[in-house]
């Protein structure tokens, strides 16, 4: 029953298995950044309020500061580093949907999940999902345009 506060854990991140020894109390965000060098997920509040650390766990957006790394054993984790040429990335670039870029990875992960899960999302659904992230530079209008452009593109192809 007595176990060491640190233990070995194997996490599946961006399709790769990683075995690390971390504190059982470590959050996923801390492990991604400090053990795996995946610094794309950003600490903005460590309190689940800002969304800058959002990653996908089995496809669902989750704030990685609010989940223990050890909880994610056996699950598939996708970070911003695991997105390659996703339409939402290009849309963010083209729509000028970021400035300082700090909230961007979290915003993109959430928006990416939205466009994947809810390709027919209406304005209300977009709002419900994206109000989870705070951006301090843009007016959000640019982000809205980026997300809508990806949704529109998806609908066109169907």
């Amino acid at each position: 029953m007595i176990r060491a506060p640190k233990c070995e854990m194997t996490l599946m991140v961006n399709g790769e298995k990683h075995s690390i020894v971390a504190r059982q109390a470590d959050t996923l965000l801390f492990v991604l950044r400090n053990y795996l060098g995946l610094t794309g997920s950003k600490p903005g509040c460590l309190n689940g309020d800002c969304g800058a650390c959002t990653v996908l766990i089995d496809g669902t957006p989750i704030k990685s500061c609010m989940i223990l790394a050890i909880e994610t054993i056996g699950k598939s984790i996708t970070t911003i580093e695991g997105l390659h040429d996703a339409p939402i990335q290009r849309a963010f670039v083209e729509q000028f949907a970021f400035q300082c870029g700090y909230c961007t990875p979290g915003f993109i992960m959430n928006a990416h999940a939205l466009t994947e899960h809810r390709p027919d999302a209406d304005d209300e659904t977009i709002r419900k999902w994206l109000e989870s992230n705070i951006c301090r530079c843009t007016s959000y209008r640019e982000i809205e345009q980026a997300v809508k452009s990806v949704l529109a593109e998806g609908q066109k192809q169907e």
């Binding site: 959002t54 989750i62 609010m66 959430n110």
Partner: peptide, 12 residues
């Protein structure tokens, strides 16, 4: 439920 915290937080 839908009014608690925000959507991403509610996934958890």
């Amino acid at each position: 439920a839908s009014e608690v915290a925000d959507h991403t937080a509610r996934n958890q």
